[in-house]
Design a protein around this nucleic acid. Structure first.
Lengths: 274, 274
DNA sequence: TCATTATATTTATACTAATAAATACAACAA
DNA sequence: TTGTTGTATTTATTAGTATAAATATAATGA
């Protein structure tokens, strides 16, 4: 048999990985968090008997994973940083970049999760939350202007992000925020300008208004029903960005620079003979 | 005002990050995948006019993100690797390690997602899938032995993983598999030995059997109903591992070595004067 | 001819050393 | 007190060298 090199083959773990795992184990064992500091690079070099570059690679791993941030100067160094969702979100996007994913599939989840999330925040909204929601809605109604449909869509998604932040279940909150982020970036890429856009915007605003009312009444059933309708309605307006997700998934926040062609690209296309 | 150093402050992006972003942009633009190779380190050094260590750090970022794998030897180098779920899963665990998360919250999602997933694979199971499901079930009934409750639990979760692999929605599949992985690792840590364990195992086996029947009949409604009952039942047996999730979230697969104390720990506790 | 072994080449991996950049903190001057 | 400047500390980056791993290819043996 050709002995297929299956990817699960346990390749020799690199030194830097061992070190980063060791540090992780330390963080877990001591249950450290937010602000606690690691020894500086020199100390780590001596401790692990490794060279600077190796220690740096280990720290780089932890930095990419969002567990530490590295700063220069006195009081700098590696400080433990309880990671936000960005690293997880980024990796999930990397993963999805290579899968085929369309709007229908996103809404298959959104229809379930946004409803559950909406219900889970009933009775948990502070006056400040209400203030922010109201502010968002007035901003929505205001900018019903000419070409600002994009901004409109941003605000509509921000409404849902506000709810997600109040969700007591961190996993549910993560998933909903991830879906919202994905939709937000899709709007940037393909400007979803459907003709009956105005009508859609108006419907969204109405749903949001009804939701806040239901929240104020602490009526979980009504919240569920309205959010379910809202999502079903939104899905029906998704036709614009049906396909072509997962295309620009890798470069997320880099919308401003996405017109830059990579050096690699320029290099490899100039020298036609590769 | 004290000018709080908010974490969103755009710190000067490090050179290595710029390079890795550039490479990402290249991958996205050329829509490369699986097996395509990057130039070797020396070429990248020249291209970006940077030192070896810097290029290495950039490659390290991409490696941690699962986008490339580095190999030595001829035909080695950096090859593009369409990432599986492991990196995303790992980051999500890092994130959750610092949140408080309990079994109830996990099942809040599982009750929704497993049902949706179960329904989504109706009519998509191949004969080979059925074979694997049957094999799993017989393995379950067989090892109802003495102390192998853990293995029993593993197999029960593996049943759900098999379904997830057949799911056409990659996002839904990811989320369910993530939840299963988390539950699996929890079993390893806290051996969930409840007294009426045997009864629970038997109930699970019965649900699985009924599910396969419903799948063979292509009866989506029945699949939904059975899976919903299955999840509700499983949740009611979750009391054993109520709390104490998110504790050992960082070191995932390292169960075998978790008794090792980190070098850092030994170092810092020996020298009492830190 | 075929399989096995040795060798050479390519490549990442790891180490050493030194300079540059950034920042906190203290010392100083107005 | 306030603002500036210097200095020490720490990472960031560069440069070069050496080692180890993996593979293709040539050499060897049956």
């Amino acid at each position: 048999m050709p002995q297929a090199p299956l990817p699960t083959a346990k390749r020799r773990p690199k030194l830097a990985e061992l070190i980063s795992d060791d540090i992780k184990r330390w963080i877990a064992a001591e249950s450290l968090g937010e602000g606690d500091r690691l020894p500086n690079e020199k100390a780590l070099m001596e401790l692990y008997g490794s060279a600077k570059a190796t220690v740096r690679e280990a720290l780089k791993i932890l930095e990419v994973e969002g567990l530490i941030t590295l700063k220069t100067g006195p009081k700098g160094g590696a400080v433990i940083n309880q990671p936000g969702m960005e690293p997880a979100s980024r990796m999930l996007r990397n993963f999805l970049h290579f899968q085929q994913l369309d709007g229908r599939q996103v809404y298959q989840l959104r229809k379930l999760l946004e409803v559950e999330l909406a219900a889970s925040v009933v009775g948990r909204l502070t006056e400040d939350d209400y203030r922010q929601l109201e502010a968002n809605m007035t901003a929505c109604t205001c900018c019903g202007g000419e070409e600002d449909h994009r901004r409109q869509r941003f605000l509509e998604l921000e409404f849902h992000q506000l709810l997600a932040r109040a969700c007591p279940n961190p996993l549910l909150a993560f998933m909903c925020q991830f879906l919202n982020d994905m939709l937000r970036d899709l709007v940037v890429i393909k400007k979803a300008y459907v003709p009956e856009r105005k009508q859609f915007d108006h419907a969204n605003q109405d749903y949001h208004r009804q939701l806040v009312e239901a929240y104020r009444a602490d009526d979980t059933q009504r919240v569920r029903r309205i959010m379910a309708e809202h999502m079903a309605d939104a899905e029906s307006h998704m036709s614009a960005l049906e396909a072509e997700m997962a295309a620009q998934m890798l470069i997320q926040s880099d919308v401003l620079h996405s017109h830059h062609r990579s050096k690699l690209h320029n290099f490899l296309t100039d020298n036609t003979a590769v």
